[in-house]
Amino acid sequence: MAHDTAHAMHPPTATGLDTRKLAIWTFIGSECLFFATLISNYLVYKGQSLVGPLPHETSQCMLHGQMATCEPIFEIPLVTFGTAVLLFSSFFVVLALNGAQKGNRKQLIGWLSATVLCGLFFVGMQVYEFYHFFHKGLGYTTNLFGSSFYTLTGFHGTHVTLGVIWLATVLVLAIRGKLPPEKALNLEIAALYWHFVDVVWIVIFPVVYLMR
């Protein structure tokens, strides 16, 4: 990708740090507050829903227009699997980066493809989960739990999706041979964003799915 900097000759920066890398870190810092606010919203309303369904308890809820008893919404095995896949994708992308830096194209393309697939899987898992929860009676506006849960995880999912698009773009570059070692930074920056999306999930998973 073209370098959007004022300095055509790239003189050394005042800190010696790459300008674009500094920018992505700055952006990541900012995003921390974005997710902190969404998480606050989820936690403040935890246990405040007026009707079911609820995360971990059976409850009274409206199902097909009449009061019914709803099962707990969360099913840990599936989301645990999705969590593991996302974690491993972080592992894969560092391997891809390692390959890019060494000029090992096979390592780069192989692991980067794996990363993209993991990302796609995670998004698919989430879509399935939403669909499934919906059929268990948790609509977007059913109660505060539903609204705050879908909003938080939905925004995370959007970030994952953007990350997949970004990594896929880099993958295309790599396949076309446009990611030589001196341009590995293009992948490093995308990878930093990807890891960030992953650590956000590292927080969301226990806080939303497991905590009491």
Partner: peptide, 9 residues
């Protein structure tokens, strides 16, 4: 600097 950009927020 990068660590600071994560830790402070």
């Amino acid at each position: 600097i990068f660590s600071g950009l994560l830790v402070f927020p």
